[in-house]
Each structure stands twice: as structure tokens, then as C-alpha cells.
Nucleic acid binder design. Sequence first.
DNA 1: CATTTTAAATTGACAGTGTCAAGTTGTCTG
DNA 2: CAGACAACTTGACACTGTCAATTTAAAATG
Lengths: 211, 211
Amino acid sequence: MKQANKPHHHGNLREALVLAGLELIDKQGADALTLRKCAIKAGVSHAAPAHHFDGLKGLRAAIIAHGHDLFAEAMREASIKSAPSHMAHLDAVCRGYISFATAHTSLFKFMFQPHDIIPDDLNDLTRDVFLEKTNASYQILRDACAPFGQSKITAPENLTTDNLTSDNLVIETMVWSLVHGYAMLFCGKTRVRACSPDFPEFSQLLSRLIL
Amino acid sequence: MKQANKPHHHGNLREALVLAGLELIDKQGADALTLRKCAIKAGVSHAAPAHHFDGLKGLRAAIIAHGHDLFAEAMREASIKSAPSHMAHLDAVCRGYISFATAHTSLFKFMFQPHDIIPDDLNDLTRDVFLEKTNASYQILRDACAPFGQSKITAPENLTTDNLTSDNLVIETMVWSLVHGYAMLFCGKTRVRACSPDFPEFSQLLSRLIL
DNA sequence: CATTTTAAATTGACAGTGTCAAGTTGTCTG
DNA sequence: CAGACAACTTGACACTGTCAATTTAAAATG
């Protein structure tokens, strides 16, 4: 079985390949992500990456999972600095969302590109990490939205598995759509309108929602 | 010069290639879009498409432009059936936005994927059509948002080139972000939460905005 | 410690891709 | 009719993902 000590030739090739891929995406754009280029960067043969990740889609999934780690970190970091009010907290999380998309535009767009990744096609390790990391970052936003649902009388969690009223679902869908659309449309440098001096900050948009 | 009559061998290869590309995206997914497959579908040699569009990015730009035609049509069609109020009109345009994304998921995602298309790199015809069509479909949404800006005292258009108050900019940015994020996140079949029975319709979200 | 077994990684090949340079063919102009 | 020019073809190239077969190293077994 795979132990914690150096398992084989390379040591920890999985991580090396993911890091190589992240660097490629960041410095040369998403199109530069290639199994063979990652292999060269990690100093292994051209077919080694496919062996670890069951093909290109597996590598992409692993990179996206790692990206969600950074993404979640950006949101957490912004939120711990926020004022204690619920609104300030949600605003901070969204600013973390936006600032990640701005600082790591290539990676952000890569993460939310349609990759047709079907979890069932991934190998066990890759799938587990992928699902865990993606859910974890989404959960941060959901938690920040939760206080804005219709105030239930603190019922014991016997409603849904997520202890959500349907109003919660509306709120988080609205906030997520808004922040994600804003990030996708305006955080790339291509769209000129976002460079206008009076282009609205996201906080301005958020404050206009009925929460 | 290129006249309206049959210019050369094929007749109208540009359109044939774009149509072939649209069909590939629709039936086999965005990854199946290939210069060579389009060439085969159109019955020409493998290098003919690159000659017309200056490479793959040119073909993509032309397909995106054509996609925006269909996209704009979907929004227009929904809007003409709407009730006469401003709110009903905006809601209808957004429903057109969403229904296009739902009906043509592959194409929609392809259109809004980051393709790193730099208009200056396109040839004249492709660039002109690309800019015209993309702006045209955005304009439909902007027009539907316009009535919700702070009511200026009908000043003669001496403020900005677009005759927009900064409040207009906030409104349309908010609506566009919201509808785009919703479409991107939930109109693909991959995301399970959108299948929940009480998952909110977009109209429900729109009605929560302060307009 | 020696042997077997298993996982990790390599090698070589293949079809498919975008792109480029050069050549060919059809059409229009003067 | 002749030349010019655009549309298209041909052939080649480097690069890609994937696969089967093989080698190598680590671990398990005795």
C-alpha cells in the first residue's frame, strides 16, 4: 500500500504535476496546460502524468481541486478581517471571491470553464479530492449567505439535510449568481467597460440586493 | 473584388464552415470543433478553413458572432411577447437569456468561454462581424435595463456618449452579472442543485433586486 | 536475506491537430 | 487573350493525448 514515506522513484509526483500545471496556466494561459509539458517540468517521461490521473481530464480535475484550495483560502482570509456584522461578513467573502478572480484570472477562468469532467470517470483519489475541495469552497459562500434566510424559529434540523429554508436557497443562488457573473464578465482584462472610472464595485451591487 | 455572385469554387465557404462548426459544437461538444472536421463537413481541403479565418481563433470568433445572432434573436423573441411594463420587459429578456443557455448549452458555454480572442488579430471581415454581433446582443439587455436608472430630468444627451447616468451603469452591471452567473452556473446539466424541485427560477431572483 | 509480487514509470508507436510554405486552379480585369 | 489575383489544394512539420508493451524500483512474502 502507498505509505507516507517515499513510495517510488519520484517521491510525490502527483503534487509536482499539479504544481507544474498551475504554473503553466498562470504564466502561459490555460491552453498551455499539457500532459507533456507538465511531464517535462516534473522531470518525468511524457506518459507519466496520464498514468497518475487517467488522462488529461484527471489532471485538470486535480488542478481544479487545488485551485479551489487557493480560492477558499482567499475567501477565508478576506472574511476574518471583516467587521462582525452579517452583511460585512458576506461582503468580505464576495470581495475574496472577486479578488481571487482578479489576482489569478487564468486559473479562475480555467476552474470555471466547462471541462465536461464527470466525477465517475476519475480515479478514486482524484474524484474524492475534487468533490471535497469544490464543495468546500462553495460552502464558504453558502455559510455567509445563511444568516439572510427567513428567520426560522430555530427549529431543530428536521427540514432538509442542509437545514435550509427555501428562502435560503433563493438567497444563496442570487448571491452566487451575482458574484460569479460579475467575476466572469469583468475580472478579465479583456472587457473594456470594467476599466471605466465609475464602473461599480461589487459591494455596491451587493448592497442593492434585498437581503 | 468579392461580389454577391458566386466568387469561387465553393460558393460561400465562410458560412458553410461556420454552420459546420455550430453543428459540431451542438452535437459533439466544444472540444469537437476542429478546423479539419469543419473542412470535411464543408467538402474542402483540410487547410481551407485556416485560409478564410486566419487560423482557429478566427473560426471561433466567426462562430461566436453567429451564435450571438441566435442569442439576440432568443432575447428579442421573448421580449416581444412580454407585457408592456418595463419590469415585464426586462424579465422577458432575461428569460430569453436563460432559455438560450438552456436550449443551446454547448454553444452558450462555448461563446462565453475565455478564448483569448484579440480582435486586432482577426482579419477585417471577421473582426467587424464579431464586434458588431457581440455588441448587438449585449445592447438588448442594456436597453431593457435602461428604464430602471435614476430618472434624470430628461436632460439632452450631454452627459456621456451612451446617455447613461452612473446609476444606469450600476443597474445593468447588476442585472447582467446576475443573469450571466445564473446561466453559467445552473443551465448546464452537470450541477445537481439546479435539479432540486424548489430551486428558484430566475424571475424570482430578479424580483428581489432593488430596481 | 532471497524471492516473488505489485506498483511506478518508461518506451515506442499511432492517429489527430494547427500551421505554414509552396503550388494549383479558377475567375475577373484590362 | 493575357495577366493578375484570390480561392483553394497539397504536402510537410511539430505537437498533442492515448495506448500497449516493457522495464525498473519498492514492498511483501517466505
